[in-house]
Amino acid sequence: MTDVVSPTAATSGASATERFQERAKAAATTGAARVNAIASDALAALHEVVRKHQVTYDEYNAFKAWLIRVGEDGEWPLFLDVFLEHEVEKVANATRQGTVGSIEGPYYVEGAPELGSEGTLPMRDGEAGRPLRFFGQVRAVTGEPLAGSVVDFWQADDDGLYSQFAPGIPEWNLRGRATTDAEGNFSITTIHPAPYQIPTDGATGALIAAAGWHAWRPAHLHIKVSSPGYQLITTQLYFDGGEHVADDIATAVKDDLILAPTPTDDGSGEQVRYDFVLDPA
């Protein structure tokens, strides 16, 4: 483990909220009829919860206070990405034939450094964690390799912290973009990430504690893969036998996304291959 200062929910949440708002500016608008349909059903579901559980005024007021705190802590991206995004992702990728998707989460940042088709992620001298070579091929569902595809990669460090969302970590630490070669191949050298708890000192943590849940995510790699003329895939990859693979707080693990690394020939670390298959746009 490295000597780091863990981010508070407020500082991490504020950063996640700012990033989300920057990206959301270009989001498409939704028509009034669809807003009406979705909002009405969402409210009806909450009304049913109130009736089913005979919610009291004390509980209602505690809920209002908690909602206010989520906003004050900047934790809406964290809360929604942990507890709701996995269902949105399932709907979005229901007809996909290629690689299985998973949630993006709140810690993606655009513009990571370019690595070429084979490179090492930016990292600190003596970066903690077992070395890991992650490699594979990007191809179409019809089988042909996709040269020039972008494999946008980010992950937590051995302390479970993300650059740009925790203090004291270099800006692009463990973030990078590989571009596939003429045969669609790429190779990224990194470190094996660690499981981590989502921030628990804010509103989301208060809910988790009150409900008696745990706050752990299994170790994972984040990837976005894109290629002209094909659908972008956003996914996460996990590790066979890893802690909390079976009970991820974000409910994002899928069998097709579990890796089984093997030792490198020289014994200096691990390696694992994973190929990405893209659907046509």
Rank of each mutant, 00 (worst) to 15 (best):
E183A: 15
I249A: 09
A215R: 06
D255H: 12
P261G: 11
T204V: 14
G267E: 06
S227Y: 01
D201I: 03
T190M: 06
A194C: 02
A194R: 11
G212K: 02
D248I: 11
T251C: 13
S226C: 06
A215K: 04
P193W: 05
G241S: 04
T235I: 12
I208C: 04
D265I: 09
G184N: 08
G212E: 03
R217P: 02
A206H: 06
T190D: 01
S226R: 15
I191P: 10
D255F: 08
S268L: 07
T200H: 00
Y196M: 10
G241F: 02
V225Y: 08
A182F: 08
W216E: 05
Q236I: 02
I198G: 09
P228N: 13
L257P: 00
P195G: 04
I191T: 13
T189D: 05
K254N: 07
L232H: 12
Q271M: 11
G241W: 02
D266C: 11
G212H: 01
A215Q: 00
F186D: 05
Q271S: 11
A260V: 04
K224V: 15
E243V: 06
P263Q: 10
P195I: 03
V225S: 09
A194S: 13
I223A: 15
L259T: 02
L221D: 02
L257W: 00
V245Q: 06
H214E: 12
D265R: 11
T235K: 14
I198F: 08
P263D: 12
A203K: 10
A219H: 04
A250L: 04
H192I: 14
V253R: 00
T262S: 12
I233M: 15
L237I: 04
A250Q: 06
H220S: 07
A246D: 15
Q231R: 15
I191L: 00
P261W: 11
D247A: 12
S226Y: 05
T200Q: 01
W213D: 14
W216S: 07
G184C: 10
P199E: 05
A194I: 03
F239C: 00
P199H: 09
H214T: 13
H220P: 01
I223H: 14
G212A: 04
S187M: 10
P263R: 11
H192N: 10
H192A: 13
I233W: 14
A210H: 04
G242S: 12
A219Q: 00
V225T: 14
H192V: 15
P193D: 08
Y196D: 06
A215I: 00
T264K: 12
G202M: 08
F239Y: 13
L232R: 15
P228I: 15
D255N: 13
P193K: 09
T189H: 05
S226F: 01
T234C: 08
T251R: 13
F239M: 07
V225G: 12
A203F: 10
S227T: 07
G184M: 09
R217C: 03
D240I: 14
D240Q: 14
T251I: 13
G205T: 07
T189S: 09
L257I: 04
A252S: 13
